[in-house]
Structure formats: C-alpha cells, structure tokens
Design a protein around this nucleic acid. Structure first.
Length: 492
RNA sequence: GCUGCUAUAGUGUAGGGGCCAAUCAUGUCGGCCUUUCACGCCGACGACUGGGGUUCAAAUCCCCAUAGCAGCACCA
C-alpha cells in the first residue's frame, strides 16, 4: 500500500484536463458556502475571473453553495446598465451559481445591525471633519465624539436615518484600538451619507461601508470560506473587530497575490477612462482584458478557468503570460475548430497548364467524418504573396504542385503535377490558396492591427464560432456581411 | 512615514529539514507523425533573490539585506 502512495498522490494532483488540484480547504467537512462579490462599476475582467473561478473551484469540489453578491452600496459607482453587463459575464463564466443577492436589497438589515453595534458600545457617530480625524488617527489620539454615550450615539444614528445630515457631516465609526500599530486599523468608518447621485435601485442616502456590509452579509449568508485578493488583507483584520463585537465566528480567509497580464490594463476605472477618451472602442475592445474582449477574440470560459486554477491561490504577485492562456485555449478549441483557408496579402495568379479540378480539404484533419470543403480550381488561384516570395516551387494544399518562374518581381505559375512526394523532395512549402470565385473579403483583426485578405466563402456559416485558418492561427468569426467577413485573431 | 505580505527555470506552478544534482504545465530548440508552421508523440534547454546563522543535514527553520506588492478613504 505504501508503495502505491506516490502514484496515487500524483493522480490526485492531475485532473484529466491537465488542471491541477489545489490545496484542500480547512474545515471543508463542516460545509462550504462561498461567494463571488463584484460591484457593478463595469463588466468583469480577468482579475475578476480569478476570484470567481477560485471560489467556484472549491464550491464544486466540496459540493458547496455559491452566492453571487452584487456589492452596490456606492451610488457613485453603480450604473443601471452595469447590472445587466455583470449578469451576462457571470453567465459566460459558467459558475455554479446557488443564489444571487443584491446588497441594495438589504439596507434595512445593515441599519438594524449598525444600531445593535452602537448598543454594544462598538461604534459611535463621528462628526469630525475627515481630514481632521485622519490627523488625530495618525497621532493615535481620540476624537471628541469617541466619548459620547451610547444614547447620544443612538440619537445621532436615528437622525442620520431621518435625513438630518448632509453628506460629509457625519459618519459612524467602529471603536477599535487607537494604539494599534497599523494606522489602517484605527476607528475605521462603517457608514456614510451620500446625497448625490441617487441609487438606481433604492431610495436612501445612508450607506454602509464595505467592511460593515460584508461582515453582516458573510455572517447572515453563512459564508464559510472567503478567497479574495491580498488587497483585502487589511480589511480582514478590520473586519475581525466587528465579528468580535457581535461574537460571530469569522469565515476562513485566503488571500491571493496581485495579478497582472502583459500589455493589458485590468482596472475598471482605467478602462472606463480609455473608452471615454477614445483610446478603446468599448468594453470589448480587443486590447482589453475584459471578459467581453477575450470572448470576442475566441477565448473559451473553460480555458480561462483552467488558466486561473493553474495559477492557484499563491500570495505572490504574478505577471500572467498570455502564452499560458493561449495554450489552455488551444487545448479547448483545437478539437472543435473547423479548418479553413485564409489568404493574407493576396495575389491572384493564373496557373498555366493546370487542369480544372476540385480540391477536397478536410474540415478537421483528426476527424475525417466531419467532411470536407470543396474548392473548385478553374485556372487561377489566390495565394499569399509572402509565401511564394523567392520560391521556385510550392504546393497548393490539397490540390497540386506549381513551379514559379520569376521575371523580376513578377511570378508566373505553371502546373507541376500532383505528386506530394515531389513537393516534399523539393522542400516546397504547402500553402493555403483560394479559387477566386469562392473567396470572400476577410479582415482579420489582431491586437497589433488588421490583416486584409480573403477567406473561404464557407466561413460565413461559422459566424460567432472559432475556426482555424490553416497556417495562420485560430480566429473567431465575428461578423458576416454581404461582401465582408470580419474575424478576430485569437492565437496561433 | 507607519503596518503587513511575498520571493523556485522566460512565464505559471509543486515541494514546508534528509527521498531535491528540485515537480508539472507552458515556452524555446531538435526529431517523429502529417497534404497546416495545427493536433499528437519523443528528446533537449532552463530555477531555489543575496548574505549570515541553527542543524550531522536547509529550497525548506531563524535573522539581516534587497526587490516587489498591498493597506493606512465618509471606494469596493
């Protein structure tokens, strides 16, 4: 038995798809309830995908419950249209969603718990100017409001709810420890007033701060484990004060490191600025790391999932490379994608002495039963200029060989027989080509620019699917118009 | 400035005192297969941030340095 152990361990670390097994969750046997908690300031990006999939992974592994919690307690960062975008993205990710809750539906719960916290002596209403308080805090000094009685604080709290104060006049703070060495821990704020704008879903001006609504929700929703970015490490420590006041048991927290991806901005606010200033065409601009953008480029959610699980929950900051995502996506897509010819940089040339004939090219080389594309050669072919440059012989794939004679810059093609052997012996490249009558204008959009050319007319039937342009790479057919096919390049 | 976290090949990971001249994936290079420079298969390349210490033994524990990151909002 002991001899079998190493093999078995290895098996546990490898899943069938090549995805690895993450470390076990502590206390998982007592049940697992986790959450993904985005805020509706814009659509999701790869950074969100990590949080969403990491939590999703453990929910599935332990057959737990998954709560999607929309954190919309800042009216300034909430826009009506973003709710829909968010839900679309969550749908695309394919999470095992148990329930969806909106914090804006739970305001009364937060109010009630704030009152309780004040009654417990754990919070006070503070009317100090924010900057003034900050200075006191840095000097570890209490502000005058800290000594108010519970009754005074409750009175102020009631007047807050009645609308007696304007924005900035008052806040509720948790009584923590002014001597705490980390200034971030000292008497942080848990409620504020926001006069404008109005919240699209509710009618109130008193809003809970992140650290309060999250604690109340995590407890009430029965969240057992939280996996979030390490930018929340300080929040976790702050939240413990609230758990302690209520005598609640906090969930198990895990924090993963910062994720960046080469050449992509992963900040919702930065993206938004870019769109407004015209740098990006929209949320799905292919230069962005939004889910909408990568979906448009032909990335599959399962590939993103595997890539994110592979990264894991390490606390180290990482620079994720597109190559890793390409590899995962290729594994998902290659078996599915039908093959077609795309001819960039096209030139139309007659082929002397060539017989009229129909080429049959497999839709997928590993699955002949899928059938073939039929390309009727009638005397001339569209070929990629760069592929014949300087060559004396090439083979048009699935058709025949051609000799190329060069008069200066001008090539002239002559039929050179059917023999694949000869082409091989001559080291002739086997290249893609198109019959002019079956060629459709095609524009291939890549992050580095656009490539114009022609693709097979049959690509029109693959709209919104990913295909492989042979010898070029994988691409998603994005739009098919009268005389133009638009495709987005994914990767080789 | 104060507080805290992290540090393994180009990238991402495994390993938490001896089994590590360090795992796996990706990448790159070479070969095989192949009417794609795809897929698949075989092989090669490539790393424990630096310096001290503890120990018979350190990638693994401790200290210092360096670097990166995060927080110190009436944002989430």
């Amino acid at each position: 038995m002991a001899a079998l152990a190493p093999d078995r361990l290895r098996q546990e670390k490898r899943k069938s798809g090549g995805a690895r097994e993450l470390p076990a969750l502590e206390y998982a046997e007592e049940g697992v309830v986790m959450r993904f908690a985005p805020n509706p300031s814009g659509p999701l990006h790869l950074g969100h995908a990590r949080a969403a999939y990491l939590n999703d992974y453990y929910v599935r592994r332990y057959d737990g419950h998954y709560v999607i919690r929309i954190e919309d307690t800042d009216p300034r960062r909430v826009e009506q249209e973003n709710y829909g975008l968010l839900l679309d993205d969550i749908d695309w990710l394919g999470l095992k969603v148990g329930e969806i809750v909106y914090q804006s539906d739970r305001m009364d719960i937060y109010y009630e718990h704030c009152r309780r916290l004040i009654e417990l002596g754990g919070a006070y209403a503070c009317m100090c100017d924010a900057a003034y308080f900050r200075d006191l805090k840095l000097e570890k000094r209490a502000c005058p409001c800290r000594n108010q009685t519970i009754e005074e604080n409750l009175g102020l709290w009631d007047r807050m709810l009645e609308g007696a104060f304007c924005e900035g006049m008052i806040t509720v703070r948790v009584k923590t420890d002014l001597e705490h060495p980390d200034p971030a821990m000292r008497d942080f704020s848990i409620f504020r007033i926001v006069d404008t704008p109005l919240h699209p879903r509710i009618d109130t001006k008193v809003y809970p701060m992140y650290n309060f609504s999250v604690v109340v929700d995590d407890h009430l929703l029965g969240i057992t484990h939280v996996i979030r970015g390490k930018d929340h490490i300080a929040n976790t420590r702050r939240q413990r004060y609230i758990y302690d006041y209520f005598s609640w048991k906090p969930p198990v927290f895990k924090h993963y490191g910062r994720l960046s991806i080469g050449g992509v901005v992963l900040s919702t606010s930065a993206i938004k600025e870019g769109i407004v200033s015209g740098v990006y065409s929209g949320w799905d601009d292919i230069h962005l790391g939004t889910l909408k953008a990568i979906a448009r480029r032909g990335f599959e959610p399962d590939a993103v999932r595997k890539a994110m699980i592979d990264i894991g929950i390490g606390e180290t900051d990482i620079t994720f490379s597109w190559e890793n995502l390409f590899a995962q996506n290729k594994a998902v897509i290659d078996p599915r994608a039908n093959r077609y010819f795309f001819v960039p940089d096209p030139v139309r040339l007659p082929v002397a002495d060539a017989p009229v004939q129909t080429a049959e090219a497999a839709l997928h080389p590993n699955e002949p039963e899928r059938g073939v594309r039929r390309l009727l050669f009638e005397g001339s072919a569209v070929v990629p200029r760069r592929e014949i440059e300087g060559k004396a012989m090439v083979r048009l794939k699935d058709l025949f060989n051609v000799n190329i004679a060069w008069k200066g810059e001008k090539p002239s093609l002559t039929y050179a027989g059917e023999s694949l052997e000869e082409a091989r012996n001559a080291h002739a490249p086997i290249i893609q080509w198109l019959p002019p009558r079956q060629a459709r204008n095609c524009i291939l959009k890549t992050p580095d620019g656009e490539v114009e050319g022609y693709c097979e007319e049959a690509c029109a039937a693959e709209c919104h699917r990913v295909v492989q342009f042979e010898r070029v790479g994988f691409a998603r057919i994005d739009a098919v118009a009268e005389d133009l096919v638009t495709a987005y390049f994914a990767h080789r």
